[in-house]
């Protein structure tokens, strides 16, 4: 129930941010429509720990800046490879550990790998992910398991 209320509040905040017009009529329309959408989501039974993972919010505060910094570093690496006249690539396909307990955690980990240029998640299995990497260096970064541990930390015990 708390989750559904949270969804309705999030949707209403979204409405407020997008509309930018604060008149009584539009505000009440926003309340009605966000409650309506929350009701539909309740009937579809999609508001659970997977569809609306509000519980990982506070832990994400340290994860996001770290991930953005990793993305910037990886971007520069891949950009240097592309602009060098001789393409020094060594594409590699490998399987890495994904020690997250829940599916949400695994998705967060797989998406983080994909967001970092140089590595793309090709498949997700039970406890492992298949990764395609542009260089051996990018592959070693994933195999070293730093991102895996950070994703585990963010997932916490939910």
């Amino acid at each position: 129930m708390l989750r559904k209320l949270g969804l309705a509040l999030t949707l209403f905040a979204f409405w407020l941010l997008l509309s930018g017009i604060y008149e009584p009529l539009l505000l009440s329309l926003g309340v009605v429509s966000s409650l309506f959408v929350a009701g539909i989501a309740h009937r579809m039974d999609v508001v659970d720990h997977e569809g609306f993972p509000i519980h990982i919010g506070p832990k994400g505060i340290t994860y996001w800046p770290w991930l953005i910094w990793e993305i910037i570093k990886a971007n520069i690496d891949v950009a240097l490879i592309i602009i060098k006249p001789d393409l020094e690539i060594s594409p590699i396909m490998f399987r890495a550990e994904a020690s997250q307990k829940t599916e949400v955690g695994q998705v967060i980990y797989a998406n983080s790998i994909t967001l970092t240029p140089g590595t793309v998640t090709v498949g997700v299995n039970e406890g492992t992910v298949d990764v395609h990497a542009l260089t051996i260096g990018a592959a070693d970064e994933v195999i070293s398991g730093r991102m895996d541990r950070r994703a585990c930390q963010m997932e916490g015990d939910s």
Binding site: I71, V78, I82, L87, P91, L115, G118
Partner: peptide
């Protein structure tokens, strides 16, 4: 990068640059 890299899987990495940074 999309133009230079050899196959579709490596081109995805180049597309990743455009989508993030």
């Amino acid at each position: 990068g999309i133009l230079r890299l050899p196959d579709v899987y490596t081109r995805m990495h180049a597309a990743g640059i455009g989508d993030t940074l």
